[in-house]
Computed example of a mutant assay.
Amino acid sequence: MTQEQKPYRSMPIGVVVKRQPGVTRWAKYAWKATSILPGAGDAHWRELRREGDVVEFHAGTATLELFGAETEAYVHGLGAQVPCLYVIMRQMPGTPDTPFEILLVTASPYEAQDYCDTGEELVEKVAMTPGIEAWVRDFVELFHEDEEFVKRRRHRERVDKVEDGIGDPRIGGVGDVYASPALQRRRMQ
């Protein structure tokens, strides 16, 4: 494999975040990642568009990285009805002008699920542009190798005949190994 065929690709991706008025009195604004800007330069919450109370910002630019070892996840993501990228953002308390930090943009639904499990980050699905979808598909076609399913074989040894750990070891008799020591004492009196 030559240096050019290394199973890794990267591209800067700008993230567009929409701010709109909140629907409850507890949340002044609702924030949502709505689109991506492939090949975008650096930005830090640059206002792109304003319509009344709704504002769209170029919140930041992150690097979308594709790894050869994760092609199975990319295949899964591309198989969705609408292939998406996942934007992972972390809330920045005490900074009302820049409420979120863009941590990661990924094409792997498996990696996005890992961030969902923590509950500390906001994970948003954003539809891939046709160009990004083609770029990810080309990467998968180059580097994905299907793994053959190997069914495991069961051992024929019978392990259910052994009764290790049954009952209370303080009971000396073989009569009722499941009896509690207090019940056993009452029977002996």
Rank of each mutant, 00 (worst) to 15 (best):
M1A: 05
Q5I: 03
P7M: 01
Y8M: 11
V16F: 00
V16R: 04
P21S: 07
V23H: 04
Y29I: 02
A30D: 08
T34C: 04
S35C: 05
S35G: 01
I36E: 02
L37G: 02
A43W: 04
A43Q: 07
E47F: 05
E51H: 06
V55H: 02
H58R: 04
H58Q: 06
A59T: 06
T63H: 05
E72A: 07
V75S: 06
G77Q: 01
L78V: 12
V87R: 02
M89P: 03
R90V: 13
M92D: 11
G94A: 10
P99Y: 12
L104P: 00
V105C: 02
Q113P: 06
D117H: 05
T118Q: 08
L122F: 10
A127I: 05
P130D: 09
I132F: 01
A134I: 07
R137N: 15
D138V: 09
D138P: 00
V140F: 11
E141K: 14
L142R: 14
F143A: 05
F149N: 08
R153K: 14
R154F: 15
H155M: 11
R156H: 11
V159G: 08
D160N: 11
V162P: 05
E163M: 15
E163V: 15
R170C: 01
V174Q: 11
D176P: 07
